[in-house]
């Protein structure tokens, strides 16, 4: 005997809900898309588990299709993100709220942020042809 189907379903549901909550709360466009991919992972897991449970390959075929679509989506989404970033210089999704009801106030964050914590934790690209230099506090993630 093997691990029962229900347990996989529960894990898939947890991944899906985590992805959904992340999609709803996070503001970074890239994180949003990663969360969408997370939801897709939960769904794919369900398909594969069902495939095993029923002894049918169809579920795996569906998973393959999902991966394909996810790849397309990722490509297009990244292109769009680049365009959006080029026009507003930020990845914050809340910047794009022009399509709201006329006369409504813009939603603006009022709560002040605390002092920046680990600013230098971002990966950087070195210019081509130069020896990468590691500054103090730089992080390679």
């Amino acid at each position: 005997m093997s691990v029962p189907l229900e347990q996989y379903l529960v894990v898939g549901a947890i991944l899906f809900v985590l992805g959904a909550v992340g999609f709803l709360t996070r503001r970074n466009l890239i994180t949003l898309f990663l969360c969408a991919e997370l939801m897709l992972q939960g769904v794919t897991l369900n398909f594969v588990a069902f495939s095993k449970h029923h002894g049918q390959m169809t579920g795996q075929v569906f998973s393959l299709m999902i991966i394909t679509i996810a790849a397309c989506e990722a490509g297009l989404a990244l292109a769009l993100i680049l365009v959006l970033y080029n026009s507003r210089r930020t990845l914050d999704v809340s910047v794009w709220q022009d399509l709201r009801e006329s006369g409504l106030e813009q939603t603006i964050d009022t709560e002040p942020l605390p002092a920046p914590a680990d600013e230098a934790a971002m990966p950087r690209l070195q210019e081509a042809g130069k020896m990468p230099t590691r500054r103090r506090g730089d992080s390679y993630v």
């Binding site: 959904a20 709803l24 709220q97 709201r100 009801e101 409504l104 813009q106 939603t107």
Partner: peptide, 17 residues
């Protein structure tokens, strides 16, 4: 119901969920 249409994509997604 006008305030619901506040232009924030995530707010709409919340409504979907």
């Amino acid at each position: 119901f006008r305030p619901v249409q506040n232009g924030l994509v995530q707010f709409y997604a919340l409504a979907t969920v």
